[in-house]
Every structure is written in structure tokens, then in C-alpha cells.
Design a protein around this nucleic acid. Sequence first.
DNA 1: AAAAAATTGTCAAATTCTTAACGTATTAAT
DNA 2: ATTAATACGTTAAGAATTTGACAATTTTTT
Lengths: 230, 230
Amino acid sequence: MLKANSRVSPFVVERLTKYYMYLRMISSSTTGQWISSKEIAAALELTSSTVRQDISYLSEYKGISKRGYHINDLVSTLEAVIGISTPCSAVIIGAGNFGRALLLHQEFRKQGFVITSIFDANPQLIGTKIDDYTIQCISELSAVIQKQAITVGIVAVPAEAAQDVADKLVTAGVTGILNLSVTMLHVPEYVALVNSRIIIDLMKLSFQITSIKNNGNNILSADEGRSYGN
Amino acid sequence: MLKANSRVSPFVVERLTKYYMYLRMISSSTTGQWISSKEIAAALELTSSTVRQDISYLSEYKGISKRGYHINDLVSTLEAVIGISTPCSAVIIGAGNFGRALLLHQEFRKQGFVITSIFDANPQLIGTKIDDYTIQCISELSAVIQKQAITVGIVAVPAEAAQDVADKLVTAGVTGILNLSVTMLHVPEYVALVNSRIIIDLMKLSFQITSIKNNGNNILSADEGRSYGN
DNA sequence: AAAAAATTGTCAAATTCTTAACGTATTAAT
DNA sequence: ATTAATACGTTAAGAATTTGACAATTTTTT
């Protein structure tokens, strides 16, 4: 999949997922079979050099001189590397507005994430339904994870409860956690953790707006598609 | 606010917002008035050196030897730098599950973001209510932004429509955009843009899980609180 | 068939980010 | 009052990431 004994930096991973999203998007609108590093770079505001080097981490895939990369082949390779091809079962903990929204988010299914259950601690919510899902009590979390071999837990509870939920998830045996709470979660090395916190993002936005207002220009290098040399 | 002619990297901004969140959290539970760079570092999985250097960007604030940083003062300084102190008016475009969830998300208000309206293009939704908000037609977006001097647009529409919405927002005069759609948005330099895409995060998670499965260990350096030298 | 053009993969230089180290300052202890 | 301990701010070294450059390769053109 990936080149042997290569440690991939989170930057590369982030960009590889973006290449995947972008390629999937353009592959539906038939613009042709091939794409060059230059074109990808232009679309995602990167340098072609970065794109080529990132793709070179994929040992199985090679581009072709003078043509570029075969879009569908590259998509398949990325799918395998990212692990999208094998559907992934997940549960949501926290049936607040956020948890509910995620539960109903169509994009999850499209990306191969199957959400099987939603849990909450509030007795008043337990037993009520959201769409086809019945909100379950958090005390059943471990049992459900083990019985159904759930691999991912999506933590959408208030900050105070988040670490406790994460501990339960780890003990029950999930291999990955998506943290949506405004806390730092501590998990063992062998569990994948991604923090996705919209509040932090809002603050970053606020910061940028403030600095644009004060300085007349954006004090930051661009948030994404960072290019250092200019 | 910030040291003169200092260009702050996005890494620093990200961490400053985390310091803010963390300090606000601990300031409620009264553990004392002071905190050291070492303590902050331990909580957020960083080195104390990084913490000190980040805080040194704040020209107005100085720590005190042998004590550390005064929690409340540091919070106030960060608040001013990030721009939290001046409440910020925002609109949400897209009344799907995601847009609705954000509209009802309490944390937004706590952080000083006031959401005034929600828009959608679907005629069936227009006029219906969510909580106290009536979903408005996207054709009124510009007028509302200008009349109410809205500064932030939160884009929660499908990928196809996202750039179009962003263009409308820019023309109408917002100074910042939070992009929740799965697209790369292009905006002028003078508009702040932060991408917050849960689907990308899910993919990163999937990638990590896959690499842990294949390699027996996490092929990635940690997602956050990255420490290079080990 | 040869020359020109385009594009990849790779290496190393340039750039940026992180961290250790150290001088300085403040508090506490003897 | 002196010494010890703690913790900041800053500098520079070390580590990681990005990017430019170029050889190699394939396609297109003459």
C-alpha cells in the first residue's frame, strides 16, 4: 500500500485525503481520464512538487510521463490506502444537536461509515427515536461495541464527560475515535484519534478576522494550501 | 495586541486558541490563580518551550518568573487577540441537518458568535421554523448581510453550491467564512477562510486505523500535540 | 527518425517549526 | 543576607516540511 518503512506525516495524510475528495468530485464530471500534478496543485492551491511527492508515497501507484495520473486508478489506490474500501462501523455518543446531525448526515454513508447506534446519558432521551434509531443508554455502550464489533466511536458529548466516554470506548475495543468535544482526549498509542472541533475553527476564524481588521491584511499564512516560499 | 511585524503561523494560532479553551475551562474550577508553561504543556501534550514561545507573541502579556502566567489576565489577553471580546454576527447558509445542528449549538453563543439567520435554497423549507428562526430564501442573503452588517458566513450547503454561496457572501461583504462543505473555496485575500470538514477528518481517522491495522502501529506522528524530537 | 514538449520521480536546498539551553528575574528557604 | 529553586523570555540549534531543479521517460510534432 504505502512504501515500506515510511512514516507518513500528518500533512501528507491530510493532503492525500484531499486529493481523494477532489478526484472523486471531478471523476463524475467527465473531463478526461488523466490529470497532472500541476492540475491537482492548481485546484487545491499547492505546488505540483508537493503533489508529486505525496503521491510517491503510494508504492503501488505510478504516474506516467507526459500524461500524468490515471484518475480512476489513483482514486482506487487512495481508497485502499485510506481504508475507505472496507466499510467501517461506528457509534455516536451524545444525542444532542450535534450527535443527531451527524447521525443523519448522508455523506457518512457515502464514505463508507455505517453508524449503527446512538447513545446518551440523559434518561429522558433514552428510548426515544431519531429517524430509525432508538437512543440507547450509555451503560450499554460496551456491550454493543463488543457484540457488533464496532471500530469507531464518535464523541459528541459535553467536555466534562468526554474523557470518560473515550475511556469506555477504548476499553470496549474501538480502534478509532473522532473527538468532537472541546477537550483534549488521552488515548493509548494503538487507538487512532482525530480531533474535529468546530469551536476551535470558529476561533481561528475570529483570530483571522481580527488580524485582518487590525493589520489591513491577513497576518496568517493561508490556513490551508500553505505555500511557504511566498 | 500582537508583536509588531510578526507573521504568526497557523500552528501558533491553533495553539493559542487551545490555550484559551483550556484556561477558560480550568479557570472555572478554582485551582489557583497562576499556571506555568509546564502545566499548560502537560495538559495539551506540548513542550513548555513551545508554550512559552507561543505566548511570547502576545506583546501585551508577560508572565512572571517563579509564578508563571496569571490565568485570568492571560485569558483576557487571548480574548482580545483572538477577537472573542467583540461579539460577531453570523449567518448559516444551508438548513440541512448540519446547518440546523449548528444553529442550535449552544457553544456558539458562549463563544460570542451570534447567529442571526439561516438560509436555504429549497422552496419547501423556506418559511418553516427551526426554534425561533424562520428559514429564509437564499435570494435574500445579500440584503440581510448588508442591512444587519453580518461579518461571518457559515457555509453548510452541498459541495456543488458552495463556491456560489461563498461568492455571494464575499460580494455582500462578509469578512470571514467558515466552510463546512466538502470543497475548496476560493476567496480574496482580505476575507478570512477556515475549512472545517468533518468528512476529511473521518478519512484521516480511517487512514490511521488502516495503517495501525497494517503496520501494527500508528504510521503517523500524533495528530495533534505533535512533538518532533521523539 | 529526430527533435521538441510535457510530465513524472527524486534529491537536495530552502524554509519553517519545534525544542533545548541558558541568562535573568523572582520567590522561598536557610 | 545569602543561597537555592523555579520559571520566564530569547536565542540558536535541531528536526521536519516544502519546493525548486533536473534527469529520465513518454508523447507529439516536424
